[in-house]
């Protein structure tokens, strides 16, 4: 093989998984969540900004509507998925000690699940219980 990729065995090249052993899967998943956040971000931020500074009754009335409740739940869910993906890249870039990096990566996943689910649960509670 005289191509630039000659340092890789043909099998490694066919698998296309590279040094990280997971190929472009993380990169691709981050693009998917970012694309989803374009329409979700617009649909979420406008009624949310409108609801800021209003009364509790008005907020409950807004998020009791199925459309706004589902948009808010999807926005919060995909936001924390995207946050986890983004912070993972930051951690991998700057934390080089293996123990600290692994701990940070695990904490990052835990943080995203806990705070993301808190948000989803809060919106669901407003939407269902009123």
């Amino acid at each position: 093989m005289s191509q630039p990729s000659g340092f890789r065995t043909p099998r490694q090249r066919a698998q296309g998984l590279g040094a990280a052993k997971e190929g472009v899967s993380h990169w691709w998943a981050s693009r998917l969540s970012s694309i989803a956040l374009v329409p979700l971000g617009i649909m979420f931020i406008i009624p949310f900004a409108d609801a800021l500074g209003t009364s509790h009754a008005e907020v409950v009335e807004l998020y009791a509507q199925p459309f706004h409740a589902v948009v808010a739940i999807l926005f919060i869910g995909v936001t924390f998925l995207h946050t986890q993906q983004g912070l993972q890249v930051v951690i991998e870039d700057y934390l080089h000690d293996k123990t600290i990096r692994t701990a940070a990566l695990l904490a990052n996943i835990g943080f995203a699940w806990v705070v993301g689910l808190l948000g989803v649960f809060a919106v669901a509670r407003i939407a269902l219980a009123g």
């Binding site: 409950v60 936001t79 924390f80 705070v115 808190l118 649960f121 809060a122 919106v123 407003i126």
Partner: peptide, 13 residues
């Protein structure tokens, strides 16, 4: 910012 949004919703709930 995302934590603040969750805090706001949790407070409303």
């Amino acid at each position: 910012g995302a934590i603040l949004v969750v805090w706001w919703f949790s407070a409303a709930a």
